[in-house]
Each structure stands twice: as C-alpha cells, then as structure tokens.
Design a binder for these strands. Sequence first.
DNA 1: TTATTATACTAATATAATTAGTTTTAAGTC
DNA 2: GACTTAAAACTAATTATATTAGTATAATAA
Lengths: 189, 189
Amino acid sequence: MSPRIGLNQIMILEEAARAADEAGLESVTLAELAKRLQVKTPSLYNHIGGLPDLRKSLAIHGLEQLRIALLNGTVGKAGEEAVLAVGRSYVGFVRQRPGLYEATLSAPDPLDPDVSAASDEILTFMLRIMDGFGLTEEKALHAVRAFRSMVHGFASLELKNGFNMALNRDQSLELMLITYLRGLALSTA
Amino acid sequence: MSPRIGLNQIMILEEAARAADEAGLESVTLAELAKRLQVKTPSLYNHIGGLPDLRKSLAIHGLEQLRIALLNGTVGKAGEEAVLAVGRSYVGFVRQRPGLYEATLSAPDPLDPDVSAASDEILTFMLRIMDGFGLTEEKALHAVRAFRSMVHGFASLELKNGFNMALNRDQSLELMLITYLRGLALSTA
DNA sequence: TTATTATACTAATATAATTAGTTTTAAGTC
DNA sequence: GACTTAAAACTAATTATATTAGTATAATAA
C-alpha cells in the first residue's frame, strides 16, 4: 500500500530541530512533524516515545551541538581571547539555531540525569577556558556562573527581540565581556 | 440557574499569574483556568479575547510588576549601591513570581507596541540608575544591555535549575555585578 | 520459500481552544 | 413594581492535538 519512508529517530530529531529554528519550538507538534515527514502522526511513535521524549532528545542534541560550536570557536586560543571567543560562538550558535537553543532550555525535566550530563560538559569546558586566570576553585565557579549568565542572557534577550534600540549588538556583547574581564583581572591582581 | 460568579479581566489575569507561578506558564490553559475560577471555559471569552490575548496581558502585567519591584528595591539608594539593589530586586522578583516572569518573555508578539512600551519603561529606569556614572550616552546604553543580560541570564538560569552545584547563589550574583562594576569604573577613570 | 519483525497504517479516545447561539441574571428605566 | 436590556454565564458543536490499540505489509532472516 504505502512504501516505507525509512523513518528513524535521527530523521525525526533533525526535522524537529529544523522546524523549531524556522517557526519556534512551540510550533513543533507531532502533527506538524508528521506532515513534514510525509507520514501519519501515529507512525512517529514507532521511533520516539512521545512529545516529551522528543523534547528531551532535542534538548540533549542541542546541548551537544552547542558544546561543539564552542569548542570549534576556541581552537588555538587561550586566556581572555578564548573567553571572548566562547562568548561570540555562543551568541552565534543561538542566532543560527534559535529553535534548537530554545529546546536546550525547555526540557520537560531539567534535572533529568541525561540532560544534566550534557549541560555539565559545557560547564566543565568553560571551567577549562578559565584555567590559568589565577582564580581559586570557588572563584572560578562563580566566574563561570557569571559568564554563562552573561552570554545566555544576552543571547536570550536578543532572541526575544529584547534589544529594541538601534545600537550595534556585537559591540554590546564585546563590551560586556571585556568590562567583566577587566573587573576580574582586578580581583586577582 | 447558575449564580453569577462576578468574573472580570483582572480576576482572570491574577488567577492566571498564580497558576503560572504554581505550575509553570505552559500549564496555564483556559480549561484549567476555568476550573480554578469555577466557570465553564467559553465563559472566559466574555472577558478576554482568547489565549494569545491573555498571554499578552500577562506579559504586560508582569513587566509592570517587575518595574514596581525594582523601584521599591532602590528607594534611597544611588550609584553602585543602587545598581546592586536593582540586581537583587530583579532576581528576587523572578524567584517570587517565576511564572509571571516567564510570561514577560513569552508574549505572542514581543514587538507589540503595548508590550514594548512596558519593556521600555524598565529600560529607562535602568538608564536613570546608571546616571552619574560618567558614561557617554552610547556607553550607558551598552551598559544597560549588559546589566539586563546579566540579571536576566542569572535569574533565567536559576529558574531552569541551571545552577546545579552547591555554591551560594546570592554570592554568585553579587560577585558578578561587583566585578562588572569594577570593570566599568576602569573604563571611565 | 517461509517466518518474523519492524514500520506504517486506520480507528478511536481524551483534552484544549474556539465559535455560535441560547438562557438568565442584574441593572437600570418607566 | 413591572419591563427592557445588556452583560455574563451556559450548552452544543467544530477543529486541532497527543496518545493508544490493533491491523496490515514490507523488509529481512532462516
């Protein structure tokens, strides 16, 4: 009757990410996904556990992609240059994959071990970037929190069109990070 | 038959905000709201235009409440002390009214004039707080963007349980803001 | 060739948003 | 106090979604 389309988890995940980037995470419904994949909705259940399950997978996939983007953005860089590069890469990732980034923040249960693990990898990456800044372990943890807050906050506000004014955004990001780093240098001096 | 309950827009809005705080914005459905208000779902349409309309009202209401909270948190303070107070009040508000804060970020159309206006009031408030820092107008705008990014990012990550480690959160916030302010002082010196 | 399994399907159920149209309460008017 | 009217609540129906159960078939393996 109907030739098999050859669906699998990866195809669904990638189509979901594309759909999220195009129209926002909210609009990613199983009905819409099935339409895009030329399949009836219930067929999706042969490959995923349901919508919450898909969202969790999307969150993990997004965190992995984000980590790779940060990694790629910092090859061959160290010190403050590396920190700036992470900031640029982070914001760049959110601009390129807005829906996928949104998914990383909307896991059904953010405390899920698998999601936490993917999140922790980014954290330890950032900690390594801040190695050699001469911070105590505790100060370094505070600094990583600050850094994540800054870049996530910036990217997230930009995503929601929170920056209305005609004022260069890249420059805002750059200035924020440089100003913070200057203050950080003072505290270790 | 059924005695009138005396519903109005405000009652619906406040119940929606409460529900959002209790169970997250996602769980605020008209069906759930109607149940909480002891009314049938279609009755809500006598007072609101529908779910998107309610969400927009919630966003504006949340922005107003946030502005009031910031205002109250800074009476009698000036300079860096005022900036720190805004940061504390901002994060405090998000902790107290997580769902309502979520709503401020999830308006159906963030570029809607009414929502933008409410958002702009917070912006100009922050600009006034930074008056007297000796910044050029452009630098001040960049600084406000940075400040919003920091506090929103911090609050938002905290909300999503993004801070897993056992490390004092209030201290992280305090350190972030102080470190940034130190860097800012350098650039004007 | 046959047996098995995975994949896609149809059918059915439950929840939600929304609209249309009806009844009834509450308020004011004569 | 009876009457009119507008608002507020209702029932009924439509559409969209997620999900489950059960069926048929295509691909694969024996």
